[in-house]
């Protein structure tokens, strides 16, 4: 696909900021266009990594679920972890990857809450692993224009 979507978004953002925005009378609409331009700039970043960050995260979550099987004694939760750990991303459409990501993040919440109640050294290790993944998840989503 040429020109690259990245280039199209860049040009669109610049056009909004330098041409369309200043030509609009309403201060409200002008500000809206500036924000829109900012969003297009963010979309450039997101477009490039959208599939990669979801695939990477889904894989990381499945690895945690695989590790968790040695710690989780609850059969029902354990069963779901086994099934999730055995899954794989075959449909690389962003919507499909996102749907799977949401399912896996939901299961991570359950696992995290469960592990917090345990006292063994293995459970603390698993909890540390979960926290490291949560930090990594925010690194994957960081935007250059992000405030923190």
């Amino acid at each position: 696909m040429r020109p690259d979507p990245d280039r199209l978004l860049e040009v669109a953002a610049i056009h909004l900021m330098t041409k369309t925005g200043p030509a609009v009378d309403s201060a409200y609409e002008q500000s809206s266009l500036m924000v829109l331009a900012l969003m297009l700039s963010g979309l450039r970043e997101e477009h490039e990594r959208a599939a990669a960050r979801r695939i990477e995260e889904n894989r990381a979550l499945r690895e945690i679920f695989a590790e968790a099987q040695a710690v989780v004694e609850d059969d029902e939760l354990g069963g779901r972890l086994v099934r999730a750990a055995g899954g794989d991303d075959r449909d690389f459409a962003i919507s499909a990857l996102e749907r799977t990501n949401c399912e896996l993040r939901g299961l991570l919440i359950e696992l995290h809450a469960y592990v917090e109640e345990l006292t063994s050294p293995e459970s603390r290790e698993l909890e540390s692993l979960i926290w490291r993944e949560l930090v990594a998840s925010t690194e994957r989503r960081k935007l250059a224009m992000g405030v923190f």
Partner: peptide, 26 residues
């Protein structure tokens, strides 16, 4: 309102990072 689109998208991850920072994980 375009500001809702931006804040939902941009601020959410920063807010998560602020939590992680307060809890000592960043």
């Amino acid at each position: 309102d375009i500001i809702l689109g931006l804040t939902g998208w941009l601020m959410g991850n920063s807010q998560d990072r602020a939590v992680l920072d307060h809890l000592g994980y960043l």
